[in-house]
């Protein structure tokens, strides 16, 4: 079947949203790499460990379905800066995983570098964290907001956007988060991060469909033609 016509309709970026109940199946655990298993064991609570395992197992499943390799045969390595990547010959498939119990989010792209982040809206976020990671312009935007609950939302918005960007870059640029400014307005579908007023490469930050009780952001380097957002349900299993 010729793919020429289909390429125009292909998604440049696909994003998968999933939800776990925190109870991993044995199958899930076996799908993890050694490193991941070690990290899982480091979790304080069983629930957090369960969510971690579920997110990574799902990542394996989706990537293996795309690539055509059984999950156990996927090989990962770390790019300089710590970002997980696939080993050749699959290195062309970029991906990024984020999880915040009970949700996990996986973005994939063949064409663009991407970063994704999801954070469940906490009741109240500790203030000092903001000053440690936010730029001056972002702090100003927060302080301008009088209503505390909306301020919380703006804070999470800035946080996920910045995280998505930094994860996407893989900190290869060795960026100090306080130097980077992202837009705080949650209603913006697309915004451009900047560093001291200058754009950061071709990076842009895109909104995703809303996730109940959480903030989400997707960072893409370049102009994606089409983004498809899928939710994985348990109905099939």
């Amino acid at each position: 079947m010729r793919r020429g016509l289909m390429r125009r309709r292909d998604a440049d970026v696909a994003v998968f949203l999933g939800r776990s109940d925190g109870i991993p199946t044995p199958g899930d655990v076996s799908r993890l790499t050694q490193n991941e298993r070690r990290r899982a064991d480091g979790f304080r609570t069983a629930i957090l460990r369960g969510h971690f395992i579920a997110a990574h197992a799902a990542r394996q499943r989706i990537l293996s379905a795309i690539l055509g390799h059984p999950p156990g045969e996927l090989r990962f390595s770390e790019a300089p800066g710590g970002k997980p990547v696939l080993r050749p010959p699959h290195h062309w498939l970029r991906f990024n995983l984020s999880h915040s119990a009970p949700w996990f989010l996986l973005a994939c792209s063949a064409r663009h570098e991407i970063g994704v982040d999801i954070e469940v809206l906490a009741k109240q976020w500790p203030g000092p964290l903001a000053s440690a990671a936010f730029s001056g312009a972002e702090r100003q935007a927060l302080e301008r907001e009088a209503d505390p609950s909306r301020q919380n939302l703006l804070l999470h918005t800035v946080w996920v956007r910045k995280e998505a960007l930094l994860k996407g870059c893989g900190t290869g640029l060795r960026m100090d988060p306080r130097d980077v400014t992202v837009d705080a307005d949650p209603s913006l579908g697309i915004s451009y991060p900047n560093r001291a007023g200058r754009p950061i490469g071709a990076w842009r930050i895109l909104g995703l469909p809303p996730v109940p009780g959480a903030a989400v952001a997707l960072a893409v380097a370049g102009v994606p033609r089409r983004i498809c957002c899928w939710r994985i349900t348990e109905a099939s299993a």
Partner: peptide, 19 residues
């Protein structure tokens, strides 16, 4: 590599909901 997992037909450029 299989691509049909990532195809969507009739999905608008900016989705407002998770499909």
């Amino acid at each position: 590599a299989d691509h049909s997992l990532l195809h969507a037909v009739g999905v608008s450029e900016r989705q407002s909901m998770w499909s």
